[in-house]
C-alpha cells in the first residue's frame, strides 16, 4: 500500500523542523537550504504553508528526464532521483509544474522528495501534525470525517 504526505497548512507554525529533518536525513547536516520540503510564510496574511512533491502518477519530471535518472520506487510510489545517473541538466526542474524538483549546487544533481524510503523524516519531525503520512487512497479522510461529523445532528435538522 502506498502512502502520501498529507499537508494541513492550518496546523503549520513555521518552525522549520521539517526542513531541518529533511536535510539531516539526506545530507547528514542540519541545513534547510538543502531541504526538499520548504515552508512558505505569507507574512501579511499570517499563513504558513509547507510544500513539497506530490509524487504525480504521470510525473512530468520523470517523463522529461533524457537519461532516465528519475524512476518509480515500487515500494513507496516515490519518484526517485538516481544520483549516479543524473547529469544535472535540470530539464526536470523546468518540466515540474509545481517547482518541487530543484538543482543542488553542492552535488551537481537535482533533488526531490523521495519519501525517505517510506518513513518521511518531515512527518516524523512535525510537532503539530501539519505534515502526516497517510494512505494514498484516503488523503481526504480527515476532511470527510469533519463534514460527516456535522451530519445527523440537531443543528443540521
Amino acid at each position: 500500500m502506498w502512502k502520501s504526505l498529507h499537508i494541513d497548512p492550518k496546523k503549520c507554525t513555521g518552525c522549520l523542523q521539517c526542513e531541518m529533518a529533511c536535510s539531516v536525513e539526506h545530507t547528514g547536516v542540519i541545513n534547510p537550504s538543502k531541504s526538499r520540503i520548504k515552508v512558505f510564510s505569507f507574512e501579511t496574511e499570517g499563513r504558513k504553508v509547507p510544500y513539497t512533491c506530490t509524487q504525480c502518477t504521470e510525473a512530468w519530471c520523470l517523463n522529461a528526464c533524457p537519461v532516465d535518472a528519475i524512476r518509480i520506487d515500487a515500494a513507496t510510489g516515490a519518484k526517485q532521483v538516481f544520483d549516479d545517473v543524473c547529469v544535472g541538466c535540470k530539464v526536470c526542474t523546468i518540466a515540474c509544474p509545481f517547482g518541487t524538483v530543484n538543482y543542488n549546487q553542492d552535488t551537481g544533481k537535482v533533488q526531490k522528495c523521495d519519501l525517505c524510503g517510506g518513513d518521511p523524516a518531515c512527518a516524523t519531525a512535525c510537532p503539530t501534525g501539519a505534515i502526516t503520512y497517510v494512505d494514498a487512497d484516503w488523503t481526504g479522510l480527515d476532511r470527510m470525517r469533519a463534514w460527516a461529523a456535522k451530519a445527523n445532528t440537531a443543528v443540521s435538522d
Binding site: 536535510s23 542540519i30 541545513n31 537550504s33 538543502k34 549546487q105
Partner: peptide, 10 residues
C-alpha cells in the same frame, strides 16, 4: 547554505 555540521552524533 553550509548548514550545521558540528554535531558529533546526529
Amino acid at each position: 547554505t553550509k548548514g550545521m555540521s558540528g554535531i558529533k552524533d546526529m
